[in-house]
Each structure stands twice: as C-alpha cells, then as structure tokens.
Amino acid sequence: MADTLLVGTGLTKRYGGVTALQDVSFELRAGEILGLVGPNGAGKTTLVDLISGAQSATEGELALRGQRLAGPAARRAKAGLARTFQYPQLALELTVAENLLLGRAARRHGTAWQMIAGSFAGAFRPYRPADAEAVRKLADELGIDRLDRPAGDLSLGEQRLVEVGRALGQDPLVLLLDEPFAGSDADGVHGISEVVRTVQRRGHAVILVDHNVDLVAGLVDRIMLLDRGRAVFDGAPQECLASPEMQQVYFGVVEEPDEEDAPHAVS
C-alpha cells in the first residue's frame, strides 16, 4: 500500500446560510491521481480552495504526511502544495520564461500568485543559473517554445499550459489542477497530461478537476463525484461512470427496481 500523502476529514464550507461543501472526506496516496467531477456548483473548486488555503474550512481538518495542514496558502505551498486556477493567473507582462521561473521561486518565497500580485513580479529577473536551466528543461518537456514571448500574447490554452508548468516547477507533493484542459488544443491536452504523469512518476499526487469526464476517467486512478457539496461516489473511474450516482447527477436517471423487488400494494 502506497504511503498516504493527504487526508481530508469532514471538510465543510458555509457562506452564511449556504453550504457549499458538506462533510467531505478523502485520502490521497503517493503516486495517485484523483479526479474530481460533478456539475457546476457541486463544490469542486471550493474543495480545491480549502486544500490550497485560498479559503478556510468552516469545519474539518487536513493533514499532509501526517502533519496538520493549516494556515494561509503561502505556508501550504512551502509544505508541498501547488495549484492552478479555473482562469490562468499569470503575470501577463512577464515572459513565458519569467512566469515559469516564478514557480521555482515560489518554492522558497510563497505562492506564485502572491508574487504576481505583489511588487516582486514587477521587478522580477532570473537570479539563479540553476533556475534558468530548470525552466529550459521544463519548457522542453511541455513543448513550450518562444520563452521570450509575453504571457499576455498567448492563447488561453497556451496560458494554461504555462500555468501548469509553473506549478510543476514547485516540485509539489500534491498538485491541484482546476479545469486545466479548458480551452486547450490537442497539443495542450497532451502537455498537461504529461505533467500529471510526471508528478505521478515522482511518487507525488494530483487532484484533477475537469468537466470532461471521459478525459478525466482516462487519466486518473480514482474519481470522486461531487453533487451539491457532497461526495456521492468515490472509486475506480469505470465504476464511477457506470454508477447510478453518475447517471442521476448528470442525466437525472433513476434506476427502476426489478419487478420482483418492487413494493406491492397491500389490500
């Protein structure tokens, strides 16, 4: 049995009288890829936010390698978490290379997004030869060319690939990917899929959120299906796709009982 990396217990998030996530628990093992699927509003991004520290849980706890995981996103990034967002968060005025270098720097200074939002990004310059060499190697692995282009000149799919590469540059124990394939062409999907497999080969873990259930099912080891803030299925991808829970959540299909099992009226 692989070592357990990340454990969530009873994670709940409320906004006033609205419950966005209710009592969600999971275990993520080293080398495992977990897919999070569910309709809009199911709580997928909320769960990623709670894990990454972008939001605080109303109830519940997280543990990374047996140690309680708490505090702001920067502390969790240094502990070994990295994430991407539904809409790429890049420093658009910086080059592709500089955005990738931010991932390397984030390992030492906090989250890449904090660095982008702060004054550090505006004055950013490559400052360690080892970092620059690592970025060139990472770009080659991802199929990213023209490292001198400003990130603002990239297509949405290209921006996603750079953001995923930046997160990989942090060498995370757990990589959180929030809809990384949206807007990507076939090359982008391939590049991001290779990132996921690279993390797995390192013995680390990935939580992958995406609306393309078939794509997720072909890439992950396990799927957690969320519906209205609750985890309604957690298991093997093909079992999830064939489950009554999946049919109900996505298609509104409710299995009819067999005739012999159906209740009979009592006269």
Results as ranks from 00 to 15, higher is better:
T4R: 01
T4E: 12
L5I: 10
L6V: 10
T9I: 07
T9H: 11
G10F: 01
K13M: 04
V18G: 08
L21N: 06
L21G: 14
L21T: 07
D23I: 03
S25M: 04
A30C: 07
E32L: 06
G35L: 10
V37Y: 11
K44S: 00
K44A: 00
L50P: 13
G53L: 08
Q55V: 12
G60N: 11
G60F: 06
E61N: 14
A63K: 09
A63C: 09
L64Y: 03
G66C: 10
L69M: 07
P72W: 05
A79V: 08
G80T: 05
A82V: 01
R83G: 05
R83Q: 05
T84L: 12
Y87S: 10
L92R: 03
V96A: 07
L100C: 05
G103V: 05
R107H: 06
A117E: 14
G118V: 11
F120L: 14
G122M: 04
G122K: 08
A123K: 15
E133D: 13
V135P: 11
R136I: 05
D140Y: 08
L142W: 00
I144R: 02
D148F: 02
P150K: 11
S155L: 10
G157H: 07
E163D: 09
V164I: 04
G165A: 07
A167R: 08
A167G: 00
A167F: 06
A167T: 00
L168S: 01
L168M: 14
G169M: 12
D171S: 08
P172C: 14
L175C: 00
L176G: 01
L176N: 02
D178F: 01
P180R: 03
P180W: 01
A182H: 12
A182D: 04
D185C: 10
D187A: 15
G188H: 03
G191C: 11
I192V: 11
S193H: 11
V196S: 09
A205D: 12
R222Y: 01
M224P: 00
R228C: 06
D234C: 02
G235N: 08
G235Y: 02
P237I: 03
P237V: 03
A242Q: 14
Q247L: 13
Q248M: 14
G252V: 06
G252F: 09
V253N: 08
V253L: 10
E255K: 13
E255W: 09
E255D: 15
P257F: 15
D258H: 13
D258W: 11
D261W: 06
A262I: 02
P263Q: 10
A265D: 13
